[in-house]
Each structure stands twice: as structure tokens, then as C-alpha cells.
């Protein structure tokens, strides 16, 4: 297992390096931030000052070299617009996004597993068909539309839930969270539901498909032939097999939910990293964009590693490290 993890970390470093290349040179192509910072009266000298100030007068490979050196020391540069280290901005915003994404994940599992299970056990019932129709909608209807409709319905028309912001926060272990207060939960409800829809639909479909498949296997028949209770046959013998694809897909999906909660955060003005990224792109705040993308890569790699480890816990056949004969 240790060897496996080490190998994966080495791969991760390589991936990270390639990413820095792509990201760093990529953002240099999309536009020159100098023109955004410069006022309209700015003369040539004034422009040159700004360029020198930002370190953009040096050749690009030298800039990259500098960036890489700083990266190795954990420094991802200062935001052009905020003038503070980019990472500190990200860390400041990240808990909000993480809370939103986690709430979405919990919601997706809590609703998706039972719904998918039901649809898998009774594929022909009208309820199952309604569930599958719902999951189809979850996949195909755009998130921003759902978000807006939710706001229209529950905030504007019914006035039950607040439309924007995070609500009242409580500090837990130095992190400010909103899910522990009623006001926070009310703020969390709509954005987390909106964000969870795609994951939930995925869980429903995977669970249903898995259940349909597993129910026909000999080992389920054998378990039944042994008189094992149906609840245990479904809940343990079948479920453990079904969870394998669910965990894999959700693990990958969770990373992208965190990374690209942009739309949901924008609609509900959720003060997370997604909204920060949009703002950064708007003003071509290169260090912040680069730092965020590097951060996302690290997160993806880490989550994938976690998924692999969890996967091997669930599926003994893929267990690595010579435990098998």
C-alpha cells in the first residue's frame, strides 16, 4: 500500500509540473492585464512602470522560472488586484466552497442512494419511473436555470428561504461554518440542492443500474438460498458491490463540484472560491488564476488518490501491495 501511495505521489508531482506549464503559459496568451490596470490617461512611461512593477518586463521563460522557484517554496505569488498572497485569498474563501460542496455531496447520497435503490428494486412501478424522470431532468436542465427558478419560487414568491449569502456563521476549530445555525442552514439549502442535482442524478442512476445487475447474480441468489434476510441481502451483500462504481464516480465528481461551483456560487452570491475565480478572470489577475488552477490540480490528484484507497477497501480484488496470493 505504501509503495502504491508513493508511486501515486510521484505521478502527481509530474502532473502538477505539466499543469504549471500549461496554466502559466495559457494565462499569458489570453490577454495582457496591464491594460486593465492602466487608466486611460496612462502614457507609455506609466505603462512601462506598471509592467516593470508586475515583473512582466522579463522574458516569459524567466518569469516561469521565477514562478516555479517560488512555487517550490510554497509561494504562488501575489494577487494583482488585492495585493495579498494568492493562496491566502484562496484559503480564506475555500471553507465556504468546501461546505457548500460537502452539503451537496451529503444531499446527493442521502437522497440518491435510497431513490436509486427503490428504482432498482421496483423498476416497473410508477414511482420508479418518476424517480428516473427526475434524474434525467437533473442531468439535462442547466444549473443556473434551476437556481433562478428556486430563488423565484422559495425566495421571491413564498419568501421561505433567503436568496443570497451565507447567513449566520459559527466558528468551529477556527473555521467559520454556516451549517450549525438555523439561519445558516436556510442559506445553505438552495445552493447545496442546486449543486447536488447532477451528483444526485448520477447516484440514482448508478445505484439503480448496479442493483438491477447485482440482483441477477448467482451470489445474491446463493445468499437468498441460504435464507439470509432480504434486508441484509440488499443492504450488505448487494450494496457493497453497488457502492464501488458510486464511490469512484462521486470521488471524481466531488472534485469538479468543488472546483467548478462557479455557477452556483454566482447565482446565490455564495462567497466561495468559485466566485473569486470569476472575478479574477474578469480582471486578468494572473497570479490568482494560476494559483487557483494549481490548487484545483492538487485537490483533484489528492481526491483521486483517496478514491483509489477507498476503492481498494471496498473491492478486495483491486487491493494492491501483494496481499493477494
Amino acid at each position: 500500500m505504501l509503495e502504491f501511495i508513493l508511486r501515486r505521489v510521484a505521478q502527481a508531482v509530474l502532473v502538477l509540473f505539466v499543469m504549471t506549464l500549461l496554466v502559466f503559459f495559457g494565462v499569458h496568451v489570453i490577454g495582457n492585464p496591464v491594460y486593465i490596470f492602466a487608466s486611460s490617461e496612462c502614457t507609455r512611461e506609466c505603462l512601462n512602470d506598471i509592467i516593470a512593477n508586475l515583473g512582466l518586463d522579463r522574458p516569459i521563460w524567466e518569469q516561469y522560472w521565477l514562478f516555479l522557484g517560488n512555487l517550490l517554496q510554497g509561494d504562488l505569488g501575489r494577487s494583482f488586484t488585492h495585493g495579498v498572497p494568492a493562496m491566502s485569498l484562496i484559503w480564506q474563501r475555500f471553507p465556504a466552497t468546501l461546505e457548500l460542496a460537502t452539503a451537496a455531496l451529503v444531499l446527493a447520497l442521502a437522497a440518491g442512494l435510497p431513490l436509486g435503490l427503490y428504482a432498482g428494486l421496483r423498476p416497473d412501478s410508477p414511482v420508479s419511473k418518476a424517480i428516473m424522470g427526475f434524474s434525467m431532468l437533473g442531468f439535462s436542465v442547466p444549473i443556473f436555470w434551476i437556481g433562478l427558478i428556486l430563488i423565484l419560487t422559495f425566495s421571491v414568491r413564498l419568501g421561505w428561504l433567503p436568496a443570497i449569502g451565507r447567513g449566520q456563521l459559527v466558528e468551529v476549530l477556527g473555521v467559520r461554518v454556516s451549517f450549525l445555525t438555523l439561519d445558516g442552514l436556510r442559506h445553505l439549502a438552495m445552493p447545496s440542492f442546486t449543486l447536488s442535482l447532477i451528483m444526485m442524478s448520477m447516484v440514482i442512476r448508478l445505484t439503480r443500474a448496479g442493483m438491477r445487475e447485482v440482483l441477477h447474480t448467482d451470489y445474491i441468489r446463493f445468499a437468498r438460498a441460504n435464507g439470509i434476510r432480504e434486508s441484509r441481502v440488499i443492504g450488505v451483500h448487494a450494496m457493497k458491490n453497488i457502492l464501488i462504481p458510486v464511490v469512484t464516480v462521486l470521488g471524481m465528481e466531488f472534485a469538479s463540484v468543488i472546483a467548478f461551483a462557479v455557477v452556483t456560487e454566482s447565482i446565490f452570491s455564495w462567497p466561495g472560491v468559485g466566485k473569486m475565480l470569476i472575478d479574477a478572470i474578469a480582471v486578468l489577475d494572473r497570479p490568482l488564476i494560476v494559483a487557483y488552477l494549481i490548487f484545483v490540480v492538487v485537490m483533484f490528484v489528492t481526491l483521486n488518490l483517496l478514491v483509489d484507497i477507498l476503492y481498494s477497501v471496498l473491492d478486495p480484488r483491486v487491493r494492491v501491495g501483494g496481499r493477494t496470493r
Binding site: 448467482d218 451470489y219 441468489r221 446463493f222 450488505v236 457493497k240 478486495p316
Partner: peptide
């Protein structure tokens, strides 16, 4: 009790 044909399939792979 029952015994099935394919022993590769009768035992649950993840338990």
C-alpha cells in the same frame, strides 16, 4: 439448501 454451477459466481466477490 442449494449449490450452484459456477463457484466463481456463487460467492460474493467483495465479502
Amino acid at each position: 439448501a442449494m449449490i450452484f454451477q459456477d463457484p466463481m459466481m456463487t460467492l460474493n466477490p467483495v465479502l
